[in-house]
């Protein structure tokens, strides 16, 4: 009995001591995230936010398809390839559009207007969809 008591008394102060520190670090992390989020919401242009939403959507769709292939199997394999590569390819094209239209990269893409970048994106995407639909047969 005595040793158990001792451990109880020993541990009690330590937990009581660590709790406030943990909650304070949690609070800090939350603060940081909140700060990042607030800054993102306030400073990012509308169209970039839209791009980010679309890319998140593509990641979700691609992850679901990959999960299905892991759980169920890859027959017919060409269907998996075209379905999965449609999301991956679309993600890459969207990422390129984001780079080209981002105001901070203006120096690097001086010669490419936003309208030109968007037209390239639409053309590339249509090609990608055409190939994927054909490949799945």
């Amino acid at each position: 009995m005595p040793p158990k008591q001792r451990t109880g008394t020993a541990s009690a102060p330590s937990t009581s001591a660590s709790r406030p520190s943990k909650s304070s670090s949690n609070a800090q992390a939350q603060d940081i995230l909140q700060g990042v989020w607030n800054k993102y919401v306030s400073k990012t242009p509308q169209r970039t936010k839209l791009l980010d939403t679309f890319m998140a959507f593509l990641v979700a769709v691609g992850a679901l398809q990959f999960l299905y292939v892991v759980l169920v199997g890859n027959f017919p394999f060409n269907a998996f390839l075209s379905g999965f590569s449609a999301t991956v390819g679309q993600f890459v094209l969207t990422a390129s559009l984001r780079m080209q239209t981002n105001a901070e990269n203006k120096a690097e893409f001086e010669s490419i207007s936003h309208e030109r970048a968007f037209a390239d994106f639409v053309f590339g995407s249509l090609l990608l969809h055409f190939f994927c639909v054909n490949f799945i047969n």
């Binding site: 769709v61 017919p76 269907a79 449609a86 969207t94 995407s125 969809h129 799945i136 047969n137």
Partner: peptide, 26 residues
């Protein structure tokens, strides 16, 4: 054809969800 194989329906769905998402995005 792909739609005759029920196993491919998931990925056919994946492609068209991507395409429709892209249309909505545009």
């Amino acid at each position: 054809r792909s739609w005759q194989i029920s196993g491919a329906w998931v990925w056919i769905g994946g492609i068209w969800v991507t395409v429709l998402g892209w249309v909505a995005f545009v």
